[in-house]
Amino acid sequence: MRFFSLLSALCLSSAAFAQDAFSPEETEACLAGLDRKTDRRVCVGASARSCSHEQDDAICMAAEITYWDTRLKVAYALVLDRSKGKDDDAHHLNLQPRDQAGALATAQDSWHTYRADTCAFEQTLWGSGQADAPEVQTCHLYLTAEQVFYLEAVALIE
């Protein structure tokens, strides 16, 4: 249920992007066209680059970060639901009690802190020292996309 509500949130946010120069289309087309050997990170930022022909770079980057953030929420909710299902199964089948949902939540929390602290470090390296410096945005974009790839891969295997 949660998955579907997030899925519609993703569609809604895509619709919102369409009102300005940003569309996730380039990124998604790039990912769809990749062979298995190529690093998926080459596609990250493709939509922001396309958008920046017509709009400010920072706005385009922020829009693609929002896109990946939404996709992350969807993937996380899906994996969490499955973990809870397996935890429940173990309970009902009188197997050894397990708390995979708890382990997943702890891991995801620690990832959020890791992303914040990693990008805060990047922020100290660049002249402006501002949170919306291009390098800081790039940090958020790539780390978020990588966590999406990870959780989406887990969702496929589980």
């Binding site: 995979q100 382990a103 997943l104 702890t106 891991a107 929390d109 620690s110 990832w111 802190t113 890791y114 914040a116 602290d117 990693t118 805060a120 470090f121 922020q123 100290t124």
Partner: peptide
């Protein structure tokens, strides 16, 4: 900032590998 990042990474690594386990 580097130290904070590395400490956060260690926590993230341990929690992720606990989840994998």
């Amino acid at each position: 900032a580097l130290l904070a990042m590395q400490r956060a990474w260690i926590t993230y690594r341990d929690a992720t590998c606990d989840y994998e386990r």
